[in-house]
Structure formats: C-alpha cells, structure tokens
Amino acid sequence: MIEATILIIDDEPPIRRLLDITLSAQHYRVMETGTARDGQIAAAMHPPDLILLDLGLPDEDGQALLLKLREWYSKPIIVLSARNMEEEIVQALDHGANDYLTKPFRTGELLARIRSALRVSRQEENNPVREFGNLRIDLVARQLRRNNELVHLTATEYALLLLLVQNEGRVLTHQFILREIWGAPYSTQSQYLRVYIGQLRKKIENNPNQPVHIITASGVGYRFSGSSL
C-alpha cells in the first residue's frame, strides 16, 4: 500500500518530531523543513500530496508563503496556527488553505483531517454518485437519500449541500458560502446561512445537535466531513 507523502513546514523541532512520529506510524512518507524558503524548495523538488504549514515561520510570513504555494500547488494545505484568531484563520482560508488546526491540537484530530483532505484529493471527480456513511447523493438526479430513504431538499438546500460536499474536508468561510449560494450582495447576510445550515442539519444528520457531517468552525465557517463516525 502506497501512502501519501506529507511535507511539514514548521520551525519548532519538537512539533516536527511529534508530527514525524505520528504520521510515520500511519505509514505516511514525511518530509520536514523548518523555514519558508526550504519548504518552498522541498515542495517544488518533490511535490507532496499534502502540506502541513505552520503560520509562524522565522524567515517569512506563513500567509505569504501560502499565497506563493497556491500559485502552482493545488493539493491540500492544512494550516497550523498557535494563535487562535478568527481573522488570521479566515485570511489563511481565503489564501487557499483547505483546513486549519490551532495548537495545541490532538493528533487524532489531525489524522482525521489529513485523511479527509487526502480522500477528497484522490476521489474520482466523475463519479455521479457520492456516498458518505448513511448519505447517498446522486448528482445527476439531484437526489439525496439518507438510510436509503429519499430526503426532500429545497433548491437552496441542495445547492448548499452540493457546495459543501464538493469541498469536502475544506473549511468554507461564511462569506464564501454566502457569495456562492446567494450571490455577492448577500455576502454579509449571514442570517440566511444560519437558517439553512440548521435546516439542512435536521434533514441529513442523525442528531442535528451533534452534527458529524456539517461541522461548525467557530466564527469562521463550515466544513463537510464525509466520514460519519
């Protein structure tokens, strides 16, 4: 079994060691660098399947590096940040990060996010039927089945679900979702998003109060998780 290659760009040796041990134990190939410059070179020489990027690097702002990487690198980038600032996280997501974790994070959580991000980037884009645990979405018939029962979705609900599903594992900011579904003039009208997310959860989650598919990223946005544990 060939596991994916993961590039770690973090200036803290203990964190790199921890990540190295954790990821190697899961049979990922690990490359690690401690500076933005080395990270960029490593990524260009041996393009990895996923990058774990720490935002606080000694030689260059992590956000700037993120922008540079996104000029050519399209596979998942998960941002690690020691500062739990909503603005910084939203900026990283706007700059093309797929997901973020704030330090300290649990390795279990990290591995779940990595799996989810890699799963998506490998997925067959052309498969018209997508399955997530007890959910089955038929993209051609525009139908959702939950536990094999047809679930009626309104046009907006379906559009929202589709957007989330097509960006599985990726944190979508409130603004982004509002622009995509309701259009630019609505990008600050978050009340629509709140109501429709609540509504959608009632239709697709087993327990809408403990959602496993539509995950809240506090103050930032929403993330669709395909696995239903």
Partner: peptide, 17 residues
C-alpha cells in the same frame, strides 16, 4: 466584538460537544 447572526442552539451545542 464582531456581532453576527448566530443560531443559539448551534452555539450552545458547539460548546457542549
């Protein structure tokens, strides 16, 4: 503070979960 529309139920369960 940045006030934005919140679903109180979502907020409470996010913390509880």
């Amino acid at each position: 503070p940045k006030a934005d529309w919140c679903d109180l139920s979502e907020l409470i369960y996010t913390v509880v979960n």
